[in-house]
């Protein structure tokens, strides 16, 4: 028996909006500690990892570990029927081939349930070890989204370079070039507006903007984004989900021609 009640149902709606274009089908894994997902995009270039810890749910019951295969497009269709203020409860019986999403309006005057068919998905689960990164940049997520969107109108790839001067996002295309430098800035009114750079050594890596723009769809989940960079390792673009967990995206740097 599985029953997960999330008072802030909009979080789950935002999670689906963030990942549905990158991943078609995925197994959601539920255990005593939380609700999680790890999936690759269809070309096996990018990886997404989601964690929603049990303590973030108002009610969390998961009697045994369960993996539920879902088509994210279909799941998103169902979650779109929930209001932004609705409480969302996920329910599944042991051995069932369906999951039920229950939506309750805040004043309990409307209750809806949507039952979705589960699917068998063969997926590989990758082990991601803890790693030391050469540079970790934390910046406003909206700023990062804006930069990726702006640069993608000029080029296909972004070079992210971190030096003690700041973090530079560069691209080039047929019409010209662009460079955007964000300097460390901690003298802001709100901590989420800060740009903070932790650098052990300078790093400069090239990434496909198409994927970066896809990751930026998680922007509504968090005011800040953390970008962890190391040569020879995939970048980790992390959006923390307040009090609950995170969505992390992994993407390998492009090989220089």
């Amino acid at each position: 028996m599985l029953e997960l009640r999330l008072v802030q149902g909009s979080l789950l709606k935002k999670v689906l909006e963030a990942i549905k274009d990158l991943v078609n089908d995925a197994n959601f894994d539920c255990s005593a500690t939380g609700f999680s997902l790890q999936a690759m995009d269809s070309s096996h270039v990018a990886l997404v990892a989601l964690l929603l810890r049990n303590e973030g749910f108002e009610h969390y019951r998961c009697d045994r570990n369960i993996s539920m295969g879902m088509n994210l497009g279909n799941m998103n269709k169902m979650l779109k029927c929930a209001g932004n203020d609705d409480i969302i409860t996920l329910k599944a019986d042991d051995g069932s081939d369906t999951v039920t999403f229950m939506f309750e309006s805040p004043n309990q005057d409307k209750i809806a349930d949507f039952e979705m068919k589960l699917m068998d998905i063969d997926s590989e689960h990758l082990g991601i070890p803890e790693a030391e990164y050469h540079a970790i940049v934390r910046m406003p997520s909206a700023e990062f989204a804006r930069i990726c969107k702006d640069l993608s109108s000029i080029g296909d790839t972004v070079v992210i370079s971190v030096t003690k001067e700041g973090v530079k996002f560069s691209t080039k295309g047929d019409i010209g070039t662009a460079n955007i430098v964000c300097r460390q800035n901690t003298t802001v009114d709100k901590p989420e507006e800060a740009t903070v750079i932790e650098m052990k050594e300078p790093v400069s890596l090239t990434f496909a903007l198409r994927y970066m723009n896809s990751f930026a769809k998680a922007t509504p989940l968090s005011h800040t984004v953390t970008i962890s960079l190391s040569s020879e390792l995939p970048v980790v673009v992390e959006y923390k989900i307040e009090d609950m967990g995170y969505v992390r995206f992994y993407l390998a740097p492009k090989i220089e021609e």
Partner: peptide, 14 residues
């Protein structure tokens, strides 16, 4: 995808 390593090549399958 040109010059784009797969994510598989960095992490072991569990």
């Amino acid at each position: 995808i040109e010059n784009q390593p797969l994510i598989h090549s960095f992490y072991m399958v569990n």
